[in-house]
Each structure stands twice: as structure tokens, then as C-alpha cells.
């Protein structure tokens, strides 16, 4: 097991990390107009409703952008590692690591799927890997 910096959370964001612990990628949904939003926040920017629930993402999406940070080296990572901006099929985006692929093989637009990884102290993070062949449906 290795470690990562643990996220802070508030009453607005805790559901996301609770979901990840159960291997569910939850997206906040406005209880009034249905707008999906991420990162989570208390009010809907479209209709200003405060009610919200969540939908479970399919866990699939595409790579919108990615980079390989080399410097400064961070104690939690072995060079090279990929940080990617993923656009989920549901339309929201999140930043994560792209794993299971060499940097030179990764491309913008490639289909990916969520992959949960456990770290020290019970931390679970949603990482993404290339969509396995035959999984695209």
C-alpha cells in the first residue's frame, strides 16, 4: 500500500468521498432542474435550488487533457505518472490519474473507465484506466 495526500471534505462534498469508498462514482444532481455538477457545491448555478441528490456515473469517459509532472518530485509518486482531466459520459469532468498505460501511448480523446485504488489509512481514490477492449458498448 502507498500513500497519497488525503482530501479535505465538508458537508457539501463528503458524499463524493463516501461514494468512492464504496466504489461508486457519484455526481451531484440538482433536485429541481436536474443539472449535474462537479466539484460539488451547495447551490445550483442554473436555478439556485438548494435541494440535490446524486446519480451514479457509469464510470466511463474520455481523456480531455493530460500531463506528466516531473518537477518537483513528489514523495507519493514515481516518475512518470499521468494526471488527466476526464470528461465523464454524463458530461461532468474530474481530475485524476490515468493508470495502466504508458505516457507515450495515452491520447486526448481516448476512452477510459474508473478503477478504484486503495491507499494508506483507508483512503480510496477513483483512478482511470483505458477502457478494456470489448467493453465499449
Amino acid at each position: 500500500m502507498s500513500s497519497r495526500l488525503a482530501p479535505s471534505m465538508t458537508a457539501d462534498t463528503q458524499f463524493f468521498w463516501d461514494g468512492v469508498k464504496e466504489h461508486k462514482l457519484l455526481i451531484q444532481r440538482c433536485g429541481s432542474c436536474g443539472l449535474l455538477r462537479h466539484p460539488p457545491r451547495p447551490m445550483c448555478p442554473r436555478c439556485n435550488a438548494l435541494e440535490w441528490d446524486t446519480v451514479e456515473s457509469s464510470g466511463r469517459g474520455t481523456v480531455r487533457s493530460f500531463v506528466m509532472p516531473h518537477h518537483p518530485p513528489l514523495p507519493w509518486f514515481e516518475d512518470p505518472y499521468i494526471v488527466a482531466l476526464i470528461e465523464l459520459d454524463e458530461g461532468t469532468r474530474l481530475v485524476t490519474n490515468l493508470v495502466g498505460i504508458a505516457p507515450e501511448s495515452a491520447t486526448i480523446g481516448m476512452p477510459v473507465e474508473v478503477h478504484y485504488e486503495e491507499f494508506d489509512d483507508g483512503l480510496v481514490l477513483p483512478l482511470f484506466a483505458p477502457l478494456r477492449a470489448g467493453d465499449a458498448s
Binding site: 487533457s65 493530460f66 509532472p69 494526471v83 486526448i108
Partner: peptide, 30 residues
């Protein structure tokens, strides 16, 4: 302790101004 906004990035190793800018600029390059 990570500030709330950084909690969406630092666990994945995106935690310097250079890296924040680069992830945005890569999209422009592409």
C-alpha cells in the same frame, strides 16, 4: 491538511502552479 479546492487535485499529484497551468494549456495545444 489540504484546503478544500486543492482536495480535487493534490491527491493525484497536481499541486504546483506549473501543473495547474499545463493541464489547461495542453487542451489549447491540442
Amino acid at each position: 491538511t489540504l484546503p478544500l479546492w486543492l482536495s480535487w487535485y493534490a491527491p493525484y499529484g497536481l499541486m504546483t502552479p506549473a501543473s495547474w497551468v499545463a493541464l489547461h494549456a495542453r487542451s489549447y495545444m491540442h
